[in-house]
Amino acid sequence: MASRAKIEISRVSKVFDGSPRNRTAVFNDISLTIDEGEFVSLVGPSGCGKSTLLLCVAGLESRTSGEIRLEGKLITKPGPELAIVFQEYALFPWRSVIRNVEYGLEAVGVPARQRRERGRAALNLVGLGAFAEYWPHELSGGMRQRVAIARALVIEPKVLLLDEPFGALDALTRSLLQKELSRICQATGKTVLFVTHSISEAIYLSDRIVLLSKRPASIRLEVRTALPRPRDPYDPEFVALTERLERVLLEEVPEQAETMVAA
């Protein structure tokens, strides 16, 4: 087989310890392998723990049991090999756009000139080359998220993790950024783990979709999508797959899935 396992999640569980009486299992016994260059989406009802799973992969959240490996090495702490993009952008408001993008390069000790060059290249990649000297608060939500993506890509992580990155954006910006992300991933061949609650977004972007059940989450269904890119959400096959996955989600949590479909 040509594909190589990039991330191996094996039998991972997470229990939030409140008081002894208030132990909540977030997810249970999840095993999942993501291959080099693969784009995998985690989809599930809100509150099912998909974001927590992503944080565990990022090394930002501890797991209760099980192992997560990156290229065979156990993940124990966060680092530039696993860059994460959050829904809320998490840009540093006290840094200009270019200096936000350079942050990770500073942390690993890249010299200033090289930082500037690579930062500019990353901004060009997300189409914000002209906004290098702006402040984050001067940009729209969609532009801020592009900066966050550039900031994550510039450090050349082995895996890009995205936690509902387009969840706070309006529909138009959202579909625009989906297109951009798809293009960038095709161009760079990045391995991506993507969390979303939108099934059509997952189908649009992914090579493989992993549907999680309600809390405590486990893997409900895995689907490979081989639709040719760029994908068209109005294509009959696309629509059929959307309907099929939505039905599974509806079975999972009727009341939540309904509001999701409505939205």
Binding site: L82, A83, F92, R95, A107
Partner: peptide
């Protein structure tokens, strides 16, 4: 200091002292 900023910085490779000086200090400014 916003925990999200801390998380973002950590995942970009910042260590403890760098977090203090480049995230907590400016956000406390």
């Amino acid at each position: 200091t916003d925990q999200l900023m801390i998380r973002a910085a950590r995942s970009l490779g910042a260590g403890h002292m760098r977090l203090l000086l480049t995230v907590s200090l400016p956000s406390a400014a």
